[in-house]
Design a protein around this nucleic acid. Sequence first.
DNA 1: GTATCTGCAAAACATTTGCAATTCT
DNA 2: AGAATTGCAAATGTTTTGCAGATAC
Lengths: 132, 132
Amino acid sequence: MGNVTKFLVENKIKPSYQRMSILEYLIKYKTHPTVDEIHQKLVVEIPTLSKTTVYNTLKLFVEKGIVLLINIEDNETRYDADTSAHGHFKCVKCNKIYDFSFNNADIVVDELKQYIIQQTHLYIKGICLICL
Amino acid sequence: MGNVTKFLVENKIKPSYQRMSILEYLIKYKTHPTVDEIHQKLVVEIPTLSKTTVYNTLKLFVEKGIVLLINIEDNETRYDADTSAHGHFKCVKCNKIYDFSFNNADIVVDELKQYIIQQTHLYIKGICLICL
DNA sequence: GTATCTGCAAAACATTTGCAATTCT
DNA sequence: AGAATTGCAAATGTTTTGCAGATAC
């Protein structure tokens, strides 16, 4: 049983060929792809793969907490299989999205002290070193 | 010349009745409204107001830097006339969006030290005090 | 009188939904 | 066989675009 299969089962997701392929893609290519990008790449190997299945699968992954949804763009949602605490930097020139590490613990907001905090998203936009 | 008119002129935006109304609305009601919400409220006073104009105007305001675009929701864009450094907290129960203050200076990311940083968005989701 | 702004209608996208066919056990 | 998954086609909802008429200076 492959790593991905095991990981899905551990997270109470029934493995299917499509689900395993999509998760493998997200783990292998950490480019924070959109639904369209994932579909375009995988449809080469799985010609019958539909966008609906990509949508369904990603929705399931997000619900089960094994994938994060990234809203750094105005128009489309991106996905990230790295669920550890980290931020996202988007270069407005090359449009690449970089991960950077930060500690949620570093962000202490007194005003929210008594609120229940479930998710923290830190998005920074600017120009990356390569494009400078 | 009203405050809003002056403010628009200072930011090189030609004042029009529609533009002034939309800006006034954003300044008065700090609810981070969507295009639809703004349109629905203002069309009562300005029956000819079109959504296209709301879209055009907000796009212009964002370009000129007098309004911030908020992407805390998956499906629609929200707008904020408060351009000072602050974060947004979304209560997943009542769906209200709260502002909270934080210092951009508090978020120092070594990995991005040499990058040019243009915008920082901090979105926190959870449950607010009222809904607890 | 010429630029710009507005607003309708249509188009363009991303995403969701209904449902029938397929797959898996 | 029975339950879940897949995928097509259509619907939905947000945002953009093209263009004609209105407005402003």
